[in-house]
Write a protein that binds this DNA or RNA. Sequence first.
DNA 1: CCCCCCCC
Length: 614
Amino acid sequence: MADKFRLTEGALRLIMKGDQIEDPIMQVLGSKRIASTSADKERFRLLLSDGKYLVSFAMLTTQINDKIVNGELVDNTIIKVKRFITSVINSGGKSNKRVLVILEMETLLPGDQTEKIGNPEHLPETDIDTELDDSTTSNNAKTNGQVNSSSKPAPASTNRIMSKKSANVDLNASLQDHVILPISSLNPYHNTWVIKARVSNKSGIRKWSNSRGEGQLFSMDLVDESGEIRCTGFRDVVDKFYDMIEVDKVYYISKCVIKVANKQFNSVKNDYEMTLINDTIIQECHDADIAIPQTKYDFINIDKIANIETGTIVDVIGICKSVSEVLTFTARSSGRELKKRELILVDQSNSGISATLWGNDAEKFEGSSQPVVAIKGAKIGEFGGGKNLNILGSSILKINPDIPESHRLRGWFDNGGMQQNVTNISAKSSGGGLQTPWLSLKEAQNQPSESVEKGVYFQTKATVLMFRSENCLYKACPTEDCKKKVVDMENGMYNCEKCGRQYPNFKYRLLGSMNIGDWSGNQWVSMFASEAEKVLGMTSEQVGEAAEANPQALTGITDKANFKQFILKCRAKTDTFNDEVRLKTVVIKVDNINYKEYNAHLISRINELQGMNN
DNA sequence: CCCCCCCC
């Protein structure tokens, strides 16, 4: 039986000299797992025989590890080696070794149907060419591809992406002929490696300026079958590599610096990250290799997000059930003009969440067809007790990706999911749409610090004890939605620093501050114009006009608010001012007391206190 | 060496 498959005697001697042999037939005489770092994907070493010689420095590329794992390569198995590379490695100052890596193979005869053929002996070391290749020199160069082209060396002249400044590297060098290491095996202690990775995401070029200097940077996410890694280039390296990198393309990459990733800022699943340097070599890989995966997701159902901490980075897939227009507004904190678009994503957990796209992402998005939206690396945010998602610059957003989860969702949505009532976990006030809880002022003041750091929402029936008249009115920018205080230029013009221009007019706006009391205590609270107007029973404009006519009138107006009672929806949040932490309470909504509702609440509380609710 | 991703 084994006669049918004559081993290619002597093949290993040629191979270990760096030659290529077409489809040599060999016998596996043993295999073992290579001890590796914890982060490493497992690798297997083979004892190979060509019938005459034995080589123990043979490995499988990790893509075909399953052949060992599933028992296909038991001892004595006869294989045809269809694609392989050899490479000289020098690890840790010891003598050089040439290793043989099998990239593609076919089992000709299972090991249990034959036995060891011949009496092979270890290939003498003198027969192994361990001359260190100059930098990245290809072993194929020695045979010029004539013996065999099965490893498909790219013509040296074409499609080469290489840093011009790395001219010291042999331009005939092709990284593809090197041992390709899995991304998961990269670590800071080993710097001679080549990876083959798909660029799954690429940032824009960002400039920074801080106390330590300024510069520019860009980053990209690299992924292979073993894992992923974030890769960043700084300053002039940006100019060198930025344009040549295209998302979704596969590259051979070598000579980067590997350092420990700062997990605080890097959600890519790798303990390390890499930095592009001047010596870095990047070469595009042209043979489409399906073993290099597309984006890796770790999807979480939308309903689960309700219970995940704000700030966490997650992967989410959902149907874009609805989408807002692009909204433009000015950030109160930074004064910057922002653009956003909000999507409602729903999934089979019958939950929905608001996902916000920013800037360019917001403008580009087209969601009218209710597509599947997959997001890798969205950041969980919180507003009014509900959770939402922010699509960051580092997030990967894909529309209708061709992945099973996407097809499953489509099927669900188009066959009934569309009509399902979903729980919107972005709804204001925590607990998924529950009404704002009733707390007394004293209870609100005694909330645990971790709660008030995030903000506690509550409502209470309170009496206005004193509405402050000082500074309750200001002259605001007349532009719609810009509420910034303007500076009177004393020449009939009013300057808005936020809008950066002057206007001949302004708008009066109220800014309410009052002391309120309920049965438990009292509290200073502030509120914006819309709510202050409800308390005073006048519009900002009316108050402004009255004060302009007679400044003395202002105290009369604010005094009228005293002893009025309202249902106040508030947010209590800690605020640090001059190193002092204090509780800041903002009235979000002022409502007149609906006695029917309020009495129902009181009755419910009484029943609760009497233990009659259950 | 960045590390911002914003708003109600």
